[in-house]
Design a protein around this nucleic acid. Structure first.
Lengths: 330, 330
DNA sequence: ATGAAAGCGCTAACAA
DNA sequence: TTGTTAGCGCTTTCAT
């Protein structure tokens, strides 16, 4: 019952070689050894169920096979879908995911990154839009570990960058609304605007320079809170900067006895699963979240393999998913 | 710029003592040393910004300050709310959270636990309802690390247990429906029933032994798929075993031109955030998810502190949140 | 083709 | 009161 942890020594003893030999053979130097020895060692590994201890490995400069992931709120569908994608490819590659929930709190974010580093992660994926350059500088470049900032301009040339085509997303929403005949439209946006949201907004505003801009909390509650103000205006459609906001607007409208669609058309952003399940189903901009996560993981893994290759920047496209929340306006 | 990692040796040199002394002083043995030395060491730590390396610590039998968390789907509001709670208290205690997404796949779950162990986590929080006893036995007790299985009967007396009062939840839903005058009711349940769901169902069935039981996929899509069948029966209300299922039913009803409430009353389970934002707002059983997460983290932390104290079992209550998805039936 | 030795950063036991 | 030694599990020269 008391299955002791099997170490490299056990394998060595079992295979009647030295620990050094085991290490060599199990780490790709196999061809330098007598095939018989190699076979014996491999057999021993199997028989004993040996797996190298990552901590000990990390101690001698190898990888710990851990990646730190920092998100602002794991409860938000955007981020948890992302994390799911990340975790999936990480896991397949034998890495594990360390999760930090920054809560939009700069201090905690920085602290998280610090802890990650302290615990020996090999790299970081940062999906917190508000992360400060300072935090990045201090914690990351100082430690010389690769990192990846998602959906945000790389703050410097110190990392790969993975972006979503936010501006196109904003434009898509605008074009669609225009096509549907909406002249007076509003934009519901959070009070503080991270770079990606700013881009969405710009894309939209290029098309509708006169759009009414309403600021609120970046949450369902915020969306709901914006409804009374929305109702005093004569806009026929609203673009919510994410689906959460849109759901809040749905609710606010319902509480005022109004109908989404006939009373006010709405377009969201993200295409979270719930979009299909609200009534009317929400027309939204789809971001390839799972793909984003997977790509992020792949990028960081690739960099770990080739630490010196040129930093790359990849941009993922977005698309409009038409459902039923926007009606023709004349 | 090239801030080298500061080790205990640096501190020792700086404070003009031996590494051992530094270790002792920084680990609670301070009182055994000359106050002057203590001061010098502490100062050195500050000046150099020294933090002990967890990996090295773990090597000599100390804690790695990492806890593994295994969930089936981080995308599901139940689990991500839970994880948020866990992460919060873990982080405050200086621990970091390692996340594994088991995807209801027994093999991957087992593999996750194994990887966690391999990476040296100090303990496990397992929220996968379908985790097999075998996986637990093999991976966990063999390694002698504490673990906690959530919302499920402890498979043995080998761990603390944290439960939700599922049976009461089922009963609450039933009583409420009865109070509202519903005679013929249905239950929508997933095909495979983990222990906790089974208990919810039992609690309900004790009250409505004649209830129609419909099985489907455990997802929004599953809920939606159950609607046609539901419509052929003459039930006036339905109890969905979680909110996701309920949302699916909302959608299915809408697609059939039916209204939640007037055509079919529905009660969900979980009280995820969206409940408030669908129309009509969903009456549901609230599980204290964040509390569940926090309690889980506290329990595991407590056990780490006191490995030999008696295993405890705590049960968290649930409550019915009345909203607008159930109407009076006569 | 293989192994001995050193060392990663830390702590515990034992000396001094 | 403090330092020395040894060792956790692994990898990497450098001998043999």
């Amino acid at each position: 019952m008391e299955k002791k942890k099997v170490t490299i020594k056990d394998v060595a003893k079992y295979a009647q070689v030295s620990p050094a030999t085991v290490s060599q053979i199990l780490n790709g130097q196999a061809k330098r050894f007598d095939p018989k020895t190699v076979a014996r060692v491999r057999q021993a590994k199997e028989d004993l169920g040996y797996e190298a201890n990552y901590l000990a490995r990390k101690m001698v400069g190898k990888q710990s096979m851990m990646i730190g992931i920092l998100v602002p709120d794991i409860t938000n569908p955007f981020f948890n879908t992302l994390v799911k994608g990340i975790e999936e490819v990480l896991f397949q590659a034998g890495f594990i995911a360390i999760l930090g929930n920054g809560g939009f709190d700069g201090a905690k974010e920085e602290q998280c990154l610090f802890e990650f580093a302290q615990h020996g992660v090999d790299g970081f994926i940062i999906a917190s839009p508000s992360i400060s350059d300072k935090a990045l500088q201090t914690v990351l470049t100082a430690k010389k570990r690769p990192y990846l900032v998602l959906d945000q301009k790389a703050p410097d040339g110190q990392s790969d960058a993975l972006l979503l085509d936010d501006r196109a997303g904003g434009r898509l929403a605008a074009e669609y609304l225009a096509k549907k005949g909406h002249k007076k439209v509003a934009l519901v946006v959070p009070k503080v605007l991270p770079a990606n949201l700013k881009r969405r907004m710009q894309g939209f505003l290029e098309y509708y320079p006169e759009a009414l801009v309403l600021t609120t909390e970046f949450s369902k509650a915020g969306g709901k809170a914006s409804v009374p103000k929305l109702l005093t205006t004569k806009v026929s459609a609203v673009f919510a900067l994410n689906d959460e906001l849109a759901f809040g607007i749905y609710r606010g409208l319902a509480e005022h006895g109004k109908q989404v669609g006939s009373d006010l058309s709405v377009v969201g952003y993200d295409n979270v699963e719930m979009c299909e399940y609200v009534t009317p189903a929400l027309t939204t901009i789809k971001q390839p979240l799972t793909l984003l996560g997977k790509t992020a993981a792949k990028l960081i893994l690739a960099r770990l393999k080739e630490p010196t290759s040129a930093y790359q920047q990849v941009m993922l496209p977005v698309e409009l998913i038409e459902r039923a929340s926007v009606i023709q306006n004349n």
